[in-house]
Design a protein around this nucleic acid. Structure first.
Lengths: 225, 225
DNA sequence: CTTAAAATATGATATTTGTCATGGAATCTT
DNA sequence: AAGATTCCATGACAAATATCATATTTTAAG
């Protein structure tokens, strides 16, 4: 397994603010973990004893609603850090994490990173900033959920995935989700999600190949009400 | 104006982690501000140059949706701290704050508090913890918004206000909101909010006197689907 | 390769929620 | 106190979304 000091991934998250020495210590005690598509990384209510740094693959963070349905709260890709919040608040995690494809992660034990958190102000401030950002994003999500139609939310998640996670060489969204996942992100029934995607297809806004989705008319997608 | 060192309010927020010396400095440079019911404290997009500590009164934090409607993201009462996020992220605020009744606040300039944030790890960790909590709360809100019916959300906000902000001696919720505010918290049309409250009243779950609302049957409210 | 299971698709229908219109009640202003 | 204005309430209807049923297609398993 590689060394954190040389790992480019950390540039994407707050680990970039660790000093060289700190990184070397982290590197020495981290462990690599592999997860297969569909595998649960951790589950709501568990006590996490460390943070996960995503090296490759994608996962969803979900929360169980009282009606028994899972709601996807966030998608996390390469460079993402899972378990920040639990680390900081010293509470059990309030979200579950499930791999959407095969994943490669580094696991850094709590004891190691907590030490850095309390002693390296640059690192702390960086975590703080990241958290502030998450919070802002969260507010936007809330407003979207409260005020926009399902169709609009679906259009937005397609554009979001396109813009943030990119496409393969044929132009298909590089993150592949089931219709059920789409429903759970958008916050609607699976059938409704399917219907809307079908409609988008009919209208030429997207095309599909199996589960893969390609945005064909980004401009019009933007104007969906 | 009182001194922060002696102010009991600070026990409710992360300012409690400041040392005596820090508090004295803060106290020396803080200013008192009064806002009348309905007055805007700050508006989405503004640059805040400090944080507000709520001494008395209630305000709503709102975000404008693209459809032109305001969405209430959070209610803040005595002890709450406004502007944390902007302080930390050094970005313009993404929310507006509006007084729901007459308010009394202390304003602490950014320069003073930023210094403490970078030098007092106990304080930083406390802010971090508070932020982690906000984030968790935010996830819950998102799931509620996505998965629960308007009626259910209305029932929950009534119980939330009851549990967190209390009632007056007659049992009426101590926070008084317009129907429009309720609609904007729950994320629905004003008419729908009115209709649901009327229905609750008919069913004996609540009673009203002007704008005041009293929960009459908490148990049943809990079971509203 | 065949069969079973899961995911996708679509119709029919019920329910929820939004919109528009209108009238009354409360509150503010002068 | 009268008028103006805002807020609350409710009906009628339209639109969005959920639910149930049932094919069809795709994927997984043996």
């Amino acid at each position: 397994m590689g060394k954190c000091e040389q790992c480019i991934i950390r540039e994407f998250n707050s680990l970039k603010s660790l000093t060289k020495e700190e990184l070397m210590r982290v590197s020495a005690c981290k462990t690599g973990k592999l997860y297969r598509k569909g595998q649960v990384i951790f589950e709501e209510g568990e006590t996490l004893n460390g943070v996960y740094c995503v090296r490759d693959g994608v996962c969803k963070l979900t929360k169980l609603s009282e009606n028994g349905k899972d709601q996807v709260v966030k998608l996390v890709v390469k460079g993402g850090l899972l378990g920040k919040r639990s680390l900081v608040s010293e509470q059990k995690t309030n979200l579950s994490a499930v791999a959407l494809n095969d994943m490669e992660m580094c696991f850094i034990p709590k004891s190691e990173i907590m030490n850095d958190l309390s002693k390296n102000p640059k690192f702390t401030m960086d975590v703080l900033r990241e958290m502030a950002n998450d919070l802002k994003e969260s507010d936007v999500n809330l407003v979207n959920m409260a005020q926009k139609s399902v169709k609009r939310r679906m259009a937005e998640i397609l554009m979001y995935i396109h813009d943030n996670f990119g496409t393969d060489d044929e132009g298909y969204l590089s993150i592949i989700l089931s219709r059920e996942d789409y429903a759970s992100i958008v916050g609607t029934a699976t059938e409704s999600a399917i219907r809307i995607l079908s409609q988008f297809k009919k209208e030429g806004l997207i095309s599909t190949k199996g589960k893969q989705i390609k945005i064909e008319d980004y401009g019009s997608l933007k104007w969906i009400e």
